[in-house]
Amino acid sequence: MKRALLGWFERGRWDVEGALPLPPKAVIMGAPHTSNYDFLIFLGAMEKLRVEGRYIGKASLFRWPPMARFMRAVGGIPVDRTVKNDLVAQAAAEFGKSDHMLLVIAPEGTRDPTTQWRMGFYRIALAAGVPIVCAGPDYTRKVAIFSEPIVPTGDMERDLQPAWAFFRTLKPRFPDKVLFPDGTGMDGRQRGA
């Protein structure tokens, strides 16, 4: 399956660039998420880099058996958002057990415009003592781009300023679907929810 993903990625003339190689341990913040193709592009990029990623996805993606097999085969971890559990502590503990772990989280949690980005990725990185790497597709240039690592200090607002700047440089498949937590779109103009 992974070979097929890489073939699809390369046949589409996609490539990878940015701050490479990736750190051995990091939380990868994947955005903007405007299309189902974004995930496939990201999987292809990880295959091209020959690195394994673990992906947190909503539990509903794992309900249909063929999709569940696919999600697990590519490193998917189902998360039930309706159940209160300490995902931050669990994820941080997993980082402590491994010398290599790339945990990928799409903080928007939807392909629709939303200012309600989930910040668990930040809390996980801070608790685990690992950097955050921003990653996203640029459809105009057909590249999956990875940012320089961001070391979380506990000052989330300040720490994430480079992340917002990085994501604004990308050209998502559907730019009108992007809405940042401050209510601005890709162009930096206020749009509201």
Rank of each mutant, 00 (worst) to 15 (best):
D86T: 06
A31M: 02
L20Q: 08
P107W: 01
I77D: 00
V79W: 10
I28S: 04
P175M: 07
A73P: 00
F166I: 05
S60D: 15
L102G: 01
W164D: 11
R69E: 08
Y55P: 04
L160E: 00
A163G: 08
E52W: 14
P137H: 06
E157A: 13
A106S: 12
M101S: 10
V74H: 05
F146K: 06
G44C: 07
P23E: 07
L49D: 07
M71V: 04
V51Q: 07
V143R: 15
R118S: 12
M71Q: 03
R111N: 08
A26E: 00
R50S: 13
R72K: 12
A135W: 08
R191D: 00
F167C: 04
Y37N: 10
Q161V: 15
D155Q: 13
Q190S: 15
G12I: 04
P162A: 07
W8L: 15
S147Y: 08
P172H: 05
T184F: 04
G12K: 02
L126Y: 01
F166E: 06
D182S: 06
K84N: 13
K142D: 11
E17Y: 11
Q116W: 13
L102Y: 09
D80I: 08
A92D: 07
A73T: 01
F180E: 03
I145Y: 03
T114C: 01
T140I: 13
A92E: 10
K58D: 03
D159C: 07
D182T: 03
A165H: 09
A59W: 09
I28Y: 03
A91G: 13
T153N: 12
P175D: 01
K177A: 12
R3T: 12
M186Y: 03
G120I: 10
F166W: 03
Q190I: 12
F70D: 04
V83Q: 15
Y122V: 06
L5D: 08
P162G: 07
M186L: 10
G75S: 05
H33K: 01
T115L: 12
V83I: 12
T114K: 05
P65C: 01
N36R: 06
G109Q: 04
W117M: 05
M156W: 12
G183H: 02
P131N: 07
Q90C: 09
G76V: 04
I132Q: 00
M67N: 11
R54S: 12
E108K: 02
T110G: 02
A127G: 06
V88I: 14
